[in-house]
Design a protein around this nucleic acid. Structure first.
Lengths: 334, 334
DNA sequence: CTGTTAGCGCTTTCAG
DNA sequence: CTGAAAGCGCTAACAG
């Protein structure tokens, strides 16, 4: 048995009585190997169950046929995106490698740069950056950003229409007769959060309502960080009758907070979210929200990246996909 | 500028005027470097934005602090599991690398062996295999299997209580007054499918009903393969008043088939599924099902794997998590 | 304390 | 057609 338990190209070569160079040629289907040698080596490979090491191979050849998807954390948005990439990678000849650090995502600005640095040049041929916080123009390999925090920059980007979606959400609440509409936003340094807030303001203004700062809070996109601001909003002397939370996770948490405060949703409070992650359908009541076509965004990002790697020309390297209202049970007319 | 665009340890060494060995020591915080040298090198590293290559490092040191999660494909089950691992990896010092081939999952038996072979010994310190089809006892690195098709074997395993869940599902139907209960099972070579069928039989027998082979079909866990057997069941001279489909995808298809046959669910036919994938909440009517704690399974699998890597003793290397009835709208009393 | 010397497993010239 | 040798970026002895 091999000392390590792992079969290497050397083991194959020794067993087959040839050099490692020859084995390498067989593996890669290079010309210049006698048919007899070829089949003998192939036999040994099968028998030993040899599979070449991605690591060693990529270190040497700088080409791996693997696409990296770099995420801060595996949460509903990034995993939904993963499903989309997984679907559209079929038939491209690439494999997928999703990489996530172990840290707390929020406190870790610049993670994408570090991950990319560790993986690029070796291991992956191109990368999809999911909601990156900072976007350098220059990386060593083709890169596509999905919903970057800073908005589209020099980098090829896929995102959805955050502004229009926020307008739709707010208009929906207005059409149900709500006038005191709270807003629970994301961190203001995020482009998507900024656009969603802007859409909220715009829709109110168009309806002749002046946005009231007292009804607006920063929820930070995460369940934990949304807790306190949601509570503040709902315990106001004159609380809102509806809340637009700028992503589903904070919307769901808002429902929890409301219920813990003895408020019924939607009877006493309407709540609308943004994203349409699967979790939003599973809550009680299920969440009315603005759907981003997350899977499709993943699929498009992958296609764009593959084109980039292959050097295929594109009309545009910036895709903006439409959003859509999904009515469930967390809103009602007043 | 570097030819590749990627900064290597050599670039750092040259710029700082030291050897690569010294830089390596600085990076890894080894003793035996003068304070002045240390800070000078550190400065150059920051300035150049150097980050060591995971690939090169792992090739040499055989230790990466990265845990691999190997899946055939990113679909609802595996991505749900990823969320769980992501949560419980925090604070362990490990990072996560989820790897999926580009191929058609089903037709690709033995994928887990190939992936593992490509990544192990290098790149990852341990692996979680998600619903592997075959389970060798011997791999080079610590491995945990989640819901393996063949059931628990020599390998450390995390799964859920398929038998008890199936009993619960059947009892629920019985408690609603159903007596003619159909069963739409999975492929009989899958351990989980076998256990679910057994739970169904047992519950019936306990209720004094002899399982009727005429009411049992193999649905194969996939929408396409469930179509025909579901139709057979529902067009029987004396059709069942309720169907227990052994996973959600075939349950959802059963609802489709019923509706295409002019049957109303749940008025004319009750349907219960198994898994509680997000999709089951989105159908009309929403699906009553047995929930597997998928995220928790991922979290536990990660914890188990970390213990294995560290050599921490465990009472048991086989965790079986409980299932639970989730009542929605696809069942009703007769 | 610091640099030199070997490789890790693989691909790729380039001789034989 | 085949193998010897160099080297990808890095770490780990071991000398100096």
């Amino acid at each position: 048995m091999q000392p390590t338990g792992r079969v290497t190209i050397g083991d194959v070569a020794r067993t087959a009585g040839v050099s490692v160079a020859t084995v390498s040629k067989v593996i890669n289907g290079r010309y210049g190997v006698a048919a007899a040698t070829f089949s003998r080596v192939q036999e040994v490979i099968d028998q030993l169950g040899y599979e070449s090491s991605l690591v060693a191979r990529s270190l040497r050849s700088h080409r791996t046929n693997v696409i990296g998807i770099l995420v801060a954390e595996f949460e509903p948005f990034s995993t939904e995106l993963l499903k989309g990439t997984s679907r559209s990678v079929q038939g491209t000849g690439y494999e997928l490698l999703a990489y996530s650090g172990g840290g707390r995502a929020g406190s870790d600005v610049g993670w994408e740069r570090r991950y990319l640095s560790r993986l690029s040049g070796t291991l992956i041929d191109g990368a999809i950056l999911v909601t990156p916080t900072v976007v350098d123009a220059q990386y060593g390999i083709p890169v596509v950003a999905v919903d970057p925090h800073t908005g589209p920059s020099g980098l090829p980007t896929v995102d959805s229409d955050n502004f229009a979606g926020a307008v739709t959400a707010t208009e929906h609440l207005l059409s149900l007769g709500h006038r005191r509409i709270g807003f629970l936003g994301g961190r203001t340094d995020l482009e998507s959060a900024r656009l969603r807030e802007e859409g909220y303001r715009r829709a109110l203004q168009v309806a002749g309502i002046e946005p009231d700062p007292a009804l607006m809070r920063i929820g930070g996109y995460r369940p934990e960080t949304a807790d306190q601001p949601a509570r503040e909003l709902l315990t106001l002397p004159q609380p809102p009758t509806a809340v637009f939370a700028a992503n589903d996770l904070s919307a769901l948490r808002t429902i929890d907070v409301a219920q813990s405060l003895g408020l019924r949703v939607p009877e006493d409070l309407s709540v609308i979210g943004f994203d349409n992650v699967p979790e939003s359908a599973l809550s009680t009541p299920s969440l009315t929200t603005i759907s981003q076509p997350i899977q499709q965004m993943g699929a498009e990002a992958l296609r764009l990246l593959v084109d980039l790697i292959h050097g295929t020309e594109r009309e545009s390297t910036h895709l903006r996909l439409p959003t859509e209202l999904v009515e469930r049970r967390s809103c009602r007319a007043v």
